[in-house]
């Protein structure tokens, strides 16, 4: 009887949609127990928990994604929503225009260049190097760039998420250690290096950091798609 129920539920989108939201709420509750501790990143906790459940129960990713796609879809309108803080704080953005554009150009070349350099050094195949090169840009853009370079978009998506979590975890301790107090600079750096996951982290630390992070993510998506072929 319960086996039949599980078979019925495990293949229905409802279970994985509701499950993702419940796991996320639990993960944010957990990270709320130690506010500011970057290691309790709710995105990382949620992914680890759900991936474990799927591996243990033998449910494949396609089945999971049938439910989770409704959440995934909101990435588009959420990116548009990043334009609203841009509108609300336009004068702050204007007064930082020159530092922003300088950091964008140098940062974007550094992100792609360092990734290609280290992946070559570790002896990865050209396909894997191409899949990793756009890893600092937001997932949809990175996957489009990767397939244009004969990379593997599914691998790109995984590396993009890893990069996002890595940046979200290291940014606050790093910036504090370097004694950088300007949240526009901190936010811009994490948005450029770690796209939307860095931006989610930035918003949880400081609204100005979140604003500049969202702008950096958008600008870097455009610039990376223009320069990435120079490295491959």
């Amino acid at each position: 009887m319960t086996d039949g129920l599980w078979v019925y539920l495990a293949t229905s989108p409802l279970l994985w949609l509701a499950g993702t939201l419940v796991v996320w709420l639990a993960a944010t509750g957990l990270s709320g127990l130690a506010p500011g501790n970057p290691l309790l990143n709710p995105i990382m906790i949620s992914i680890a928990a759900i991936a474990t459940v799927l591996c243990v129960t033998g449910i494949d990713y396609a089945t999971y994604f049938e439910g989770a796609q409704f959440i995934h879809f909101l990435l588009g309108p959420a990116t548009v929503a990043l334009g609203i803080p841009l509108f609300e704080k336009l004068s702050l953005v204007k007064s930082n225009l020159v530092p922003m554009l300088s950091a964008l150009v140098v940062g974007s070349f550094t992100a792609v260049g360092s990734t290609v350099f280290f992946s070559d050094l570790f002896g990865f195949s050209p396909e894997v190097v191409a899949s990793m090169a756009p890893k600092s840009t937001t997932a949809a853009v990175a996957m489009a760039i990767s397939s244009g370079l004969q990379g593997d978009p599914a691998l790109t998506a995984a590396v993009v998420v890893l990069t996002g979590i890595c940046g979200a975890i290291v940014v606050t301790p790093m910036m504090n250690a370097m004694r950088i107090k300007d949240f526009s600079a901190r936010g811009f750096a994490v948005g450029l290096a770690s796209h939307g996951i860095g931006t989610a982290r930035a918003y949880s630390v400081d609204p100005v950091a979140g604003l500049f992070s969202g702008i950096a993510m958008g600008l870097n998506a455009v610039l990376t798609s223009l320069i990435v072929h120079l490295f491959l």
Binding site: T20, L21, V23, W24, T28, P42, I43, S46, I47, I50, A51, L54, C55, Y61, Y64, F65, A68, Q69, I71, H72, L74, L75, P77, A78, A81, L82, I84, P85, A139, A154, A157, A158, V160, V161, L162, G164, I165, G196, I197, T199, A200, Y203, G210
Partner: peptide
């Protein structure tokens, strides 16, 4: 927009779980 941005992180979970592939 504020409501969406306050919950931005959850939107990356479905793509992230793709790591199991």
């Amino acid at each position: 927009s504020k409501a969406i941005l306050a919950n931005l992180g959850v939107l990356f979970v479905p793509a992230g779980v793709g790591i199991i592939q």
